[in-house]
C-alpha cells in the first residue's frame, strides 16, 4: 500500500492515494462524498445533461480499492448519493454493481446532508459511528477529538497542481471527496483553517500520496465563515 501512514488517537491509519482511508487493524475501508447520481439529479432538475458516467467511474475505483485492500468492512462517510431520488434512480446495472461490491463484507452508510435517510441497498445505516478509539461522522464537529469526517471536499495546491487531499491533525482527519463529479474547497478556506490546528498536514491524492504542511490563508480573514 503506497499510502501515507499516520496515527489518530492510537489508531494506525493510511491515507490512500485514491482518496480512501484504510484502517488495517479493523480491516475497514472508508470513503466519503461519492455523490453517485449527480448527473441524473442535474438533468432531472432541468439543468445540463452531464456525461452520465460518474457512477461507473466511481464504482470502478472503489472496486479497485476493495480488490487491493480486501476489507472486512466498507464505510461510506456520507453524501454517497447526490440525493435520495438519485439513489432510487440508479440504473439497474450500476445498482447491481454496487450490490456486488457489498457482498461478503459489512457495509456501513453514514448519512450526509445530501442523503439524509436510509438506503435501499441493505447494510447498516447510521447518523454516526463510534468505533473506539475513533468516531466517524459526515461533518466535522468543532471541538471533537479522534474524529473521521468528510463533507468539505478539501483540496490543496503543490507545485502548480491542485489535488483533492486529506487534512490531518492531532484531533481529526477530513477525507477528500471520492466521487468522480466532485469539486473541492481549498484548504486555505476559513472554514477549514478554523477546524484544523496549526500543525495540520495535507496529504495530496493522485498517483501517490504526498504529505505537505496544510496550506493556509496567509492573512487571517476578518470574519470566518461558519462550516456548513
Amino acid at each position: 500500500m503506497n499510502g501515507f501512514d499516520f496515527t489518530l488517537n492510537g489508531a494506525d491509519l493510511a491515507a490512500l492515494p485514491s482518496g480512501a482511508l484504510w484502517w488495517a487493524a479493523e480491516r475497514l475501508l472508508a470513503v466519503s462524498d461519492l455523490h453517485l447520481g449527480k448527473s441524473e439529479r442535474l438533468a432531472r432538475r432541468g439543468g445540463t445533461m452531464l456525461p452520465p458516467y460518474e457512477v461507473r467511474d466511481t464504482l470502478a475505483r472503489l472496486e479497485a480499492d476493495i480488490a487491493a485492500t480486501r476489507p472486512a468492512a466498507v464505510l461510506c462517510l456520507g453524501d454517497t448519493f447526490d440525493d435520495l431520488t438519485a439513489m432510487e434512480n440508479l440504473p439497474e446495472q450500476e445498482a447491481l454493481w454496487l450490490t456486488r461490491l457489498m457482498a461478503g463484507r459489512r457495509w456501513i452508510w453514514i448519512e450526509g446532508n445530501h442523503d439524509p435517510g436510509p438506503t435501499s441497498f441493505g447494510g447498516t445505516h447510521l447518523a454516526e459511528l463510534r468505533l473506539p478509539p475513533l468516531t466517524f461522522r459526515h461533518i466535522a464537529a468543532p471541538g471533537a477529538a479522534a474524529e473521521v469526517s468528510g463533507h468539505y471536499h478539501p483540496k490543496a495546491r503543490l507545485g502548480g497542481l491542485s489535488r483533492p487531499c486529506f487534512l490531518i491533525d492531532a484531533a481529526r482527519v477530513i477525507l477528500p471527496a471520492y466521487g468522480t463529479y466532485t469539486g473541492g474547497l481549498r484548504s486555505d478556506d476559513a472554514a477549514l483553517c478554523a477546524l484544523m490546528d496549526d500543525r495540520a498536514i495535507a496529504v495530496l491524492t493522485g498517483k501517490a500520496a504526498h504529505a505537505i504542511p496544510m496550506p493556509r490563508a496567509q492573512i487571517r480573514p476578518r470574519a470566518s465563515t461558519s462550516p456548513r
Binding site: 441524473e40 438533468a43 432541468g46 445540463t48 445533461m49 452531464l50 456525461p51 452520465p52 458516467y53
Partner: peptide, 15 residues
C-alpha cells in the same frame, strides 16, 4: 435534447 451519449441515454430527463 438528450446530451447525445452513446452508452447511456437520459430518457426521462431529456432537455
Amino acid at each position: 435534447a438528450t446530451g447525445g451519449y452513446a452508452l447511456r441515454r437520459y430518457d426521462r430527463w431529456q432537455r
